[in-house]
């Protein structure tokens, strides 16, 4: 059993505070759905969990089975069992997916000779053509193909906890179903813990979360079950967004907004 525990996590980009006290625990076999409006900091949460450069943790902790992830490099977090499916997977010209996954296997003490067969198996499970396996990483792939590629890598790498950042964007209905089924199978077959981030509820039509969290104002504002998805569908996020917490930039302390109407 593995547990990803996020406690009172604060993080910033440059001087802008984005995460403001995130509390969340994801255990093996659980699917947590995180929904929130654009700009609420969902993708920042994913980036901070994986240790992406440019994001600074200012307070709080992230642990995986008690290990402090904030003290680890991105590679070390991955080796510890964390996986991030990126919202926008990066193109790496001239680098074959197979070389990457074999290198990752070597680094975590697995047998790289098994990677090739695992790639083919995973590709088949999500209806991803084998011809894509020989392409340079994400180069000339459509948005949907990139998301399948991320899912394939999740399958081969066998992480303990997977963070899926907008895995649904770019996928058509059929692909979304295949990818969601693959993630669910991983939760039952290997007890994968999942943190699935999205701003559309349609992902949760396919990937049924055990827990739903509403993310707004840089933190989790509400937690519950699928009834929260229905509430978002009916009412939107408006009720959760704290207007005062909208990011404002101050100029020299004179005024919050130098372009404000002085007669207002």
């Amino acid at each position: 059993m593995a547990t990803l525990q996020i406690e009172n996590l604060w993080a910033s980009v440059g001087r802008t505070e984005i995460l403001r006290g995130v509390d969340l625990t994801v255990a093996s076999g659980e699917v947590h759905g995180v929904m929130g409006p654009n700009g609420s900091g969902k993708s920042t949460l994913a980036a901070v969990l994986m240790g992406r450069p440019g994001f600074t943790v200012t307070a709080g902790s992230i642990t995986l089975d008690g290990i402090d992830l904030t003290a680890l490099s991105t590679f070390e977090r991955a080796r510890a069992g964390l996986f991030l499916a990126l919202q926008h997977p990066i193109e790496v010209p001239g680098v074959a997916l197979r070389d990457v996954l074999e290198s990752a296997a070597v680094a975590r003490g697995a047998d790289p000779a098994l990677v090739g067969a695992a790639m083919v198996t995973e590709a088949t499970r999500i209806g991803f053509g084998e011809s894509f396996l020989d392409r340079a990483l994400n180069v000339d792939l459509s948005g949907g193909e990139k998301k399948r590629n991320e899912t394939l890598q999740m399958g081969v790498l066998e992480p303990k906890i997977a963070v899926l950042d907008e895995l649904d964007s770019g996928l058509d209905v059929d692909a979304l179903r295949l990818v969601s089924r693959r993630v669910e199978e991983a939760t039952s077959e290997r007890s994968l813990g999942v943190l699935a981030i999205t701003h559309f509820s349609r992902l949760f039509d396919e990937l049924k979360p055990d827990f739903v969290h509403i993310f707004a104002n840089g933190r989790i504002e509400a937690s519950g079950g699928l009834e929260l998805v229905e509430q978002v569908e009916a009412e939107g996020y408006g009720g959760w967004v704290d207007q005062r917490s909208e990011t404002t930039v101050t100029f020299g302390g004179l005024s919050d907004d130098p372009f404000a109407d002085p007669f207002a």
Binding site: M50, P53, S73, R79, I90, P93, V100, S103, A104
Partner: peptide
């Protein structure tokens, strides 16, 4: 970052990226 997030150590990732 992308290669590191797959579990590739930074020095190996650099080798792969430059060769690519």
């Amino acid at each position: 970052f992308y290669l590191a997030s797959r579990g590739v150590p930074d020095d190996v990732a650099t080798q792969l990226i430059v060769a690519g």
